[in-house]
Computed example of a mutant assay.
Amino acid sequence: MNILKSTLDGCNDLFLVVDEKCQKASMQFFSNTGVMALLCHHDHIIHLANMTFASEKQHHALVLLKALFDHLPSNFHVGLLYSISCQLECICRKWGFLKDILPCITFAIFIFHTFCHQWSCQLLYHPCK
């Protein structure tokens, strides 16, 4: 099921994470502004990526997913909980990113983060639906 562009734009506008103008950490004092981690369901770290930009970029998530699938069997299926999964899946489908592993990923949004998303987005990405 596809989500309307207006819905995705509405979700995108709600998040400070993807706002390049909003800086949470000073680049003047810190070389890394954050860390993105790929965790298993036991909360053990599988891979880490240092973030060196003012805002979260989706290429961090793409690289982490690629690194994960490099070590998994080709028929392995992964459930991905990410605060902006709707945006990540959309760019993957639109630009052909991770096209060889995309069928092996089920995208979902953290339960508490879903309430910040548009209703149609909640219907598709809420983990309990």
Results as ranks from 00 to 15, higher is better:
P103R: 10
F76R: 12
I91V: 15
F112Y: 13
L88F: 07
S120T: 09
D13L: 13
L64N: 09
H60N: 08
D70M: 10
D100I: 02
P127Q: 06
G79P: 00
A61Y: 06
K129G: 06
L62G: 01
D43C: 12
E56F: 10
T114K: 04
Q58V: 00
Q122E: 04
F29P: 00
W95T: 04
D19G: 04
H44V: 02
K94D: 04
N12F: 13
A25K: 14
R93E: 12
K57Y: 03
L68Y: 15
I45F: 04
R93M: 05
D70E: 15
A67W: 11
L81H: 12
C121L: 05
I109A: 03
I84T: 12
L65H: 05
A61F: 05
M51L: 12
A108M: 11
G10N: 14
A25Y: 14
E89T: 01
S6W: 01
E56W: 06
F112E: 15
L72M: 14
F15P: 00
T52N: 09
G79T: 10
H113C: 13
I45A: 10
L38I: 04
A54N: 12
S83L: 03
G34S: 09
M1N: 07
Q28H: 08
L4Y: 02
I91T: 11
L16D: 14
N2W: 01
M36V: 15
W119Y: 13
D100G: 00
F76Q: 14
K99H: 13
P127S: 03
H113D: 15
S85N: 05
K66Y: 09
P103S: 05
C116M: 12
F15Y: 11
C22P: 00
F97K: 09
S26D: 14
T52A: 01
L81Y: 13
V63A: 11
H47V: 05
V78K: 05
L38M: 12
T33R: 10
N50R: 08
G79F: 02
F30M: 07
D100W: 00
I105C: 04
L64A: 08
L16N: 14
F15G: 10
A61N: 09
I91L: 14
T52I: 01
D13M: 10
G96C: 09
L4G: 01
A49P: 00
H41G: 08
L38P: 06
H42C: 08
M51R: 14
N12C: 10
I45K: 03
E89P: 01
L14D: 08
A61T: 06
H77R: 13
Q87Y: 07
I111P: 00
P73C: 07
T114V: 11
W95R: 14
R93V: 02
L124S: 01
K57Q: 11
V63S: 07
F69V: 09
W95S: 10
L16Q: 12
L80F: 04
